[in-house]
Design a protein around this nucleic acid. Structure first.
Lengths: 146, 146
DNA sequence: AAACAATAGTTGTTACTTGCAATTAAAATG
DNA sequence: CATTTTAATTGCAAGTAACAACTATTGTTT
């Protein structure tokens, strides 16, 4: 057993985390002119599922419902999201993107895809498959830990 | 060229990012009873370099000097960090851990190492080297993008 | 069916994090 | 020696977030 490997692993993840944190701020792919970061995250998740309850959205975003509610408030005020009361359960609201919300969503998705495509081209061709596989292994390792 | 690969890559990073975000909150390795998250990050960086200026710390943490100054304030109030005016440059302060700060630092480091060692054991033995290599490749790809 | 418990959502309050601008003091530069 | 740059701090404003309390439904239990 190599005792250094887990530490190396920790260090790599740590550095990656910091790089990702920087990106979130600096690469303009979150439409910072019109959205805050939290709003960007919420909007992307709503756009992906098309319609979702506040509860489910809070689970996906891993933030409290109160925070989620206020984040959605902001998106509604800006006209990117609508709240439609559910007919099946009158406690619940169906949250979805408006037309202008969809435009923003698609902008963010394409910016983001372009950004990661750029990073990905920096990976040597004979490593690409390997990297994708390794990431799957890493994600599985995290999942396994519950 | 596989058009799906960059998107897969983006998605994997996205999921990893979210998992890491959750961890930061939920695995207790940041001494949440006594430290806020920002304080934990700062304390770890200070502990690693032993002594550092506020300026350099703000560069490492990638946050504004004003924010860094206030984060250090909190650590000083709690008795984990000391500010010692530099003798070479009287504008500058040398920031370092106190004895109780070192104890917290070592606790965090060992908690964190244990946590990542746990994740790492979930990776099949014949994949371990591969994963470490792939992470290096990924980090290099991010660096290359400036 | 009435009483009780659980769930979805909102609002009040509080705390933490952060950045920008202005200020002070001390180098560094010309 | 005057000017500019740098290190650090403080005032201010905004964003992010959780917890507690509350309303309105829905589900469950007796």
């Amino acid at each position: 057993m190599n005792r250094a490997q887990p530490k190396q692993f920790r260090e790599q993840i740590r550095i990656l985390e910091r790089k990702l944190g920087l990106l979130k701020k600096n690469n303009g792919s979150c439409c910072a002119e019109v959205l805050t970061l939290a709003q960007c995250h919420a909007l992307v998740e709503i756009g992906r599922v098309e319609t979702i309850s506040l509860k489910d959205l809070s689970v996906i975003l891993a933030i409290d419902m109160s925070t989620t509610s206020r984040t959605v408030d902001g998106l509604v005020k800006k006209g990117y999201v609508q709240r439609i009361p559910s007919l099946e359960d009158r406690r619940s609201v169906n949250i979805s993107l408006t037309e202008s919300g969809i435009i923003i969503f698609e902008t963010i998705e394409s910016n983001n895809n372009a950004f990661f495509a750029g990073i990905f081209t920096n990976i040597p061709n004979d490593e690409k498959m390997n990297v994708l596989h390794a990431l799957d292994v890493i994600l599985a390792a995290f999942d396994q830990d519950n």
